[in-house]
Design a protein around this nucleic acid. Sequence first.
DNA 1: GGATTCATGTAAGAGGTTACATGATTAT
DNA 2: ATAATCATGTAACCTCTTACATGAATCC
Lengths: 176, 176
Amino acid sequence: MTETEHSGFARYPLANVALGLLAAGPKHGYGLYRDFEEYFGSIWKAGQTKFYVALSSLLDEGYLDAELEPQENRPARKVYRLTDKGREEFLKWLHEPVYSMRAMRVEFIAKLRFFDLLGEPGAKELIDQEIALFGEMLDEWEAEKPEDPFYNLVNDYRIRQARAIVDWLEAVKQNL
Amino acid sequence: MTETEHSGFARYPLANVALGLLAAGPKHGYGLYRDFEEYFGSIWKAGQTKFYVALSSLLDEGYLDAELEPQENRPARKVYRLTDKGREEFLKWLHEPVYSMRAMRVEFIAKLRFFDLLGEPGAKELIDQEIALFGEMLDEWEAEKPEDPFYNLVNDYRIRQARAIVDWLEAVKQNL
DNA sequence: GGATTCATGTAAGAGGTTACATGATTAT
DNA sequence: ATAATCATGTAACCTCTTACATGAATCC
C-alpha cells in the first residue's frame, strides 16, 4: 500500500477502510459507502465519488476482484471481494501500531472500530504496543532539557499530548 | 489568503511564515530560508525550492514586492519587501486564533514564535481567546453522552486532548 | 410533483512537491 | 581536492478532489 514510512492513511485515506469493510464479506460499492457512513461517519467524511475512486484503484492493484450482479430495473451492482493479497494487507495494517499522535485521532480509532466490527482478536495486544510506543517517546522527550525556550514550549506541548494519549489508551483497555 | 474556512496553513503552509519573516525587514529568498530553518526548523521542515515557490506566488498575489540587488561575483539577490496588503494579511493571521486541535501543533506555535521574534504585543490576548475557544468545545463535548460506545471513545479522546491543550495554554501564559 | 435513494463512474482540474538546472566562492 | 555555502528558479509530476454525467424507482 505504498507506505512511505508508516501509515498508509496519509496517502490513501480510504483504502484500508474499504478493505476492512469488505473483510466482513463481498459487497457492492454503494453498499460499502453506506456502511462507511454508518460506521465511520462520525469521525470521517468522504464524498461518494471518492469512495468509488478508491475502490477502483484497489481493484487495479489487485487487492480486490469484482463481479457484476445484474438486477432488474436497476443498474448492475459491481460486487467487490477481497483477494488474498487484499486480506493480508488489511490484517497487516490492522495489527500494526501507528507511530504518530496525528495518526491516533483517526487511523488508530478506525482500527479499534474494525476489531469490534469484525470480532477480530488482538485489540488488547495492539493497545499495549501503542502504550509502550508512546511511553518510549515520552521518556525521550522528558529527558530533553532544551535551552531554547521556544523548543521547550514545543516539547512541553507534545509531552502533554502524549500523556493524554497514554491515559486514554489505559482507559480504553479497561473498557474493552 | 484563500481561506476555505479557518487556517491558511492547511493550504499554503509556508505563506504566512514567509510573510512573518519579512515583517522584520526586507530580505532576499536565501536569507529568508536560513531564518526559516533557524527559527522554525525544529518544528517544521521544508525544502528550499518550496520556499522559493511560496515567495514567488506571494509576489504574484501582491503580498510582496521585490527589487534586484546586484552583487559582484554572485548572482543578484532578489530582495523582497512586504506590501501594505502583505503586512495587513500577516497581522490578521497572527492575531487570529486557530480553531482546531490539529492547527495548534504547528500553526499556533508558529504564531507564538512570531510574537516573540517581532516583539509584537497581543500574545496574552490570543492565548486567552484560545483558552476560551477550547473551553467552549470542552463544555460541548462533555455535555454529550453518546449511546454509541464507539462514538463515546472518540469523544473521550478529544476531551482529553483538549484538556491537555488548555492546561498547556495556561502554562504558556504563566511563562510569557 | 419533488426529493431521496439506488447505482455507477469519468475526466478535468487544482494544488502541492521535487527533480533538475546552473555556477561561482569559500572553508577544510 | 572536495564539501558546503551562496543564490535562484522552472517545469514536470504526482496525487487527490470534485464537477459533471446518467437515470430509474420509490417515498412523501
